[in-house]
Amino acid sequence: MIDTQRIFNIKNDSEFESLALEVFRFQFENNPVYRSYCDLLYKHPSAITSLKDIPFLPIQFFKSHEVLSSSLSALKTFTSSGTTGSVTSKHHVVDLNIYEESFSKAFRQFYGDIKDYVILALLPSYLEREGSSLIYMVDALIKASHHPESGFYLNNLSDLSKIIRKLEDKGQKTLLIGVSFALLDLVETHQFQLKHTTIMETGGMKGRRKELIRTELHDILKKGFGVNTIHSEYGMTELLSQAYSKGNGVFECPPWMKILTRDTEDPLSINSEGKTGGINVIDLANINSCAFIATQDLGKVYPSGTFEIIGRFDHSDIRGCNLMAL
């Protein structure tokens, strides 16, 4: 078993690659679904010598299989949102301490001490269902902030507006994290000029509004909240880590997470930096499930390691689906 403290104490790219290869070998031996996938591709640990050699498991497997690298029972199963009757992803988590350490350390890295912030959450579509990993994270951050004003808001936008203005008047550092459609609802009925509040969108209209391109969404939100930048969080049910953007849609990962891209026509390839492709995520916090995931997002990675999300695959564009029949 790999000591998780090594994951959260990675100092450089060399340490990351070395540990990623170790995690690959561990999951090859202990994750039956991932092992079967690697076997189908004739990818054996003896042939894997760099990050670019590691096979990335298509994210759809979390909908059809139990993806686990542990014999322990799940303490919590996070599920993705989905339309009525659709199959949702399931991420079985055997150690919640790893998730809590991941999001706590990442928050501190990007934003500082949680106790300095009031955390306001406007996440109605997530609150209205069970099993959201985002709700679990935000609830923990709200509790860790130790501010009585921190909390969730469902449809009470007037109360939220009053709280925001009150905190602004006090000069209180505040983080408002919200799903895109709810933030738009807020600025359509209330206008702000915020100096002490960070606005963070988690993406998604969830079928409540027509989808907007990021620049259009952020321009509306910047004007409505009276701020210069809109922050963003990039995470998903199948991960235990998040990347953050402090503006312009450019995301940065914590040291135990890395983004690569693959050629849209070849699911087993790795692109050169700066070329648009399918997003592959290495999340070493996923030690007990799968740390190497091929997502359905499209994006590009820059030489600094930062990345941008450009869109999503159309289902007809997903290649290699014959490998799903495990």
Rank of each mutant, 00 (worst) to 15 (best):
D185M: 01
N156Q: 14
I164L: 08
K223T: 11
E238I: 05
T215C: 03
L239A: 05
E238P: 08
K222N: 10
K206Y: 13
V227L: 15
L217A: 03
K173P: 08
G226W: 02
G247N: 03
A243M: 09
D263M: 04
D263G: 10
K166E: 12
K222W: 15
F192W: 13
K246A: 05
L154C: 12
K166M: 05
K223Y: 14
L176P: 01
S180W: 04
S241Q: 04
L175G: 00
Y244N: 10
K173Y: 09
K195C: 04
L175A: 03
K223E: 15
E211C: 08
L184I: 04
I163S: 08
K170I: 10
K210Y: 15
W256A: 00
V187A: 06
E188G: 12
G249M: 01
R209N: 09
E238R: 06
T198L: 06
Q191E: 11
M200V: 14
F181C: 13
P255H: 02
W256G: 01
L184M: 11
L157P: 05
Q172D: 14
A243D: 09
S180R: 04
E252M: 08
T174E: 02
Q193V: 07
F152Y: 13
R165Y: 09
Q242D: 03
I199G: 07
K166W: 07
R208G: 01
W256P: 05
N155C: 00
S158Y: 04
K246L: 04
E201F: 06
F181D: 13
T229R: 13
I230V: 13
P254L: 00
T202W: 11
T264D: 09
M205A: 12
T197R: 02
Y234T: 02
I259G: 09
L212T: 05
F152R: 02
H218Q: 14
S158A: 06
N248P: 12
K170Q: 15
K223M: 10
Y234C: 02
S180C: 07
N248Q: 13
I163L: 06
H231I: 02
T189C: 05
I259A: 08
D169G: 09
L221K: 15
K210W: 00
E233P: 01
L186A: 12
C253Q: 06
T237D: 13
M200N: 11
K258R: 11
I164M: 13
T215M: 08
T174N: 03
C253A: 06
E252H: 14
H190P: 02
V179H: 15
T215K: 12
Y234V: 01
V227A: 10
F251K: 01
H196S: 05
I220G: 02
E168T: 15
I199F: 07
L217M: 05
L157Y: 14
V179W: 05
E201Y: 12
T237W: 09
T189H: 15
H196K: 06
H218I: 07
F192Q: 07
L160N: 11
I163R: 14
T174V: 07
R209P: 02
